[in-house]
């Protein structure tokens, strides 16, 4: 799914890297915990989060997250936007809640970045893939 489609589905306002809206997004990922994003995400995902600070941008850059959508109408401050520009990471904002935004993208066919672990699986957590 193109980032421009995600922006349309979630009626997003765009704050950085408008020129990257034609990039392909393979997965969706949603968390306010950057530790979990670092542990469980895969490259090529869009991150939906309510956490608006420089660590969100650093986490995205480190984890190969392609774009960030801030939920619940949160908007980045200038320092966050400048950092995202320097790392070529598009920042978007939607008025939808995290739950609604995830639901809309899932319904539109965007896959989850995290593998589902069935109950009673021998795997103890998302990241015990080895």
């Amino acid at each position: 799914m193109l980032l421009s489609e995600i922006a349309k589905i979630l009626s997003c306002e765009i704050f950085s890297c408008r020129e990257n809206l034609d990039c392909e997004i393979q997965y969706g990922c949603a968390s306010d915990l950057m530790s979990d994003v670092l542990a469980f995400s895969q490259p090529g995902a869009v991150l939906l989060t309510g956490l608006v600070n420089p660590q969100t941008i650093h986490t995205a850059y480190i984890s190969e997250i392609k774009a960030i959508v801030f939920v619940r109408g949160k908007k980045p401050q200038e320092d966050v936007t400048e950092l995202a520009e320097s790392k070529s990471i598009p920042l978007l904002s939607t008025n939808y809640s995290m739950y609604e935004a995830c639901g809309l993208l899932y319904k539109a066919g965007l896959e989850s970045t995290m593998e589902y672990i069935p109950p009673n699986s021998s795997k103890k957590s998302f990241n015990s893939s080895s």
Binding site: D32, L33, M34, S35, D36, V37, L38, A39, L51, N53, Q55, T56, T59, N127
Partner: peptide, 12 residues
């Protein structure tokens, strides 16, 4: 509040 402290650091 910074998004850390989930207890995933060293294991990750």
């Amino acid at each position: 509040e910074m998004g850390f402290g989930a207890g995933m650091g060293l294991p990750n």
